[in-house]
């Protein structure tokens, strides 16, 4: 195995293109686990963290651009980002331990394409996009379209993600992410749920989106229109919960049963919607 440290996006693309067996290394918190367990044996790992810009968080068109090498801990320490997208940041901050936080990235979480990735539902609910660099230049892709199946992405040979973009949040909007795990830390989500809401000045929901993790082969977008036109009252959140339970298509495995995951999808939908609503009401434009 070779270890590569390209210093530009073009160099990284060139290396990845020349060697289809090479793997991108961001925080390494998935890659190195699988490497050591012998599940993968890449010909090279390409450390993208030394490429300029990869470790930056910057404001762009009222939204936020987060470099592919930014650790989730750094996101949690960024006051502006946290204020704009508390749900996205809380999803990112739920990944792993303090030690994992110091290394793990949202782009890595996304490209690992695990159905339970904690940062993904809130990015999807926020309509985030990924900037993909490749042999044919760069393109922006909806985050939702990056993972295709467990462990698989839509990235073509030679491509990698250079940054994630969170669009400018509308006035009176906010988001929340909750996951269910058996312990309080160090578990992979059994169900994850993000809700993103925009209200009018009076506090009525004008648009709502919801996405679920760990209840299908990839993150799910679920119709959240039950909340639109409401003030997130009990009847509305119950309807949202029913939609979440109905939309979930989980499997039985060591982490949970089908029935449990469907039930808990509804429970988390309710709880996340209420948090997002309170945040959106309190959020200044």
């Amino acid at each position: 195995m070779k270890f590569e440290t390209p210093h530009s996006v073009d160099d990284a693309v060139a290396i990845l293109r020349a060697d289809p067996e090479a793997r991108v290394l961001a925080g390494g918190t998935d890659l190195l686990v699988r490497l050591r367990a012998g599940h993968i044996s890449p010909s090279a790992v390409v450390d993208i963290k030394r490429i300029p810009g990869m470790r930056d968080i910057s404001q762009e068109d009222g939204g936020w651009r987060i470099g592919a090498g930014v650790s989730c801990a750094e996101m949690g320490e960024h006051a502006g980002l946290k204020a704009a997208y508390p749900g996205v940041v809380e999803g990112a901050e739920l990944i792993g331990s303090t030690q994992v936080q110091g290394r793990c990235t949202m782009a890595g979480n996304l490209c690992n394409a695990g159905p339970a990735g904690d940062s993904v539902p809130a990015m999807v609910a926020a309509q985030a996009t990924a900037r993909v660099a490749g042999p044919n230049g760069t393109r922006d892709v909806a985050v939702f379209d990056i993972p295709t199946a467990p462990g698989q992405t839509s990235l073509a040979e030679g491509e990698f993600i250079t940054s994630i973009f969170l669009p400018a949040p509308p006035a009176h909007s906010s988001d929340a992410y909750l996951r269910f795990i058996p312990r309080t830390e160090m578990d992979i989500a059994v169900v994850g749920c993000a809700v993103n809401l925009t209200l009018d000045a009076a506090g009525t929901v004008t648009s709502a989106s919801m996405s679920l993790g760990a209840v299908g082969p990839k993150v799910k977008q679920v119709d959240a229109s039950a909340l639109v036109g409401t003030i997130c009252d009990d009847a509305a959140v119950e309807a949202l919960a029913a939609a979440a339970t109905a939309a979930a298509t989980p499997i039985d495995d060591k982490r949970g049963t089908i029935a449990f995951r469907k039930d808990v999808s509804g429970v988390l939908a309710k709880r996340a919607a209420r948090i997002a609503y309170i945040r959106a009401k309190g959020a200044s434009s």
Partner: peptide, 27 residues
Amino acid sequence: NEEYIYGEDGTLQNAGYLDYRIPVASD
């Protein structure tokens, strides 16, 4: 939470701390 989980094929499904869940400090 702790348990040995064997699959249909008789192999251990959770041979690591991630899914063999011993208590952590925050629990």
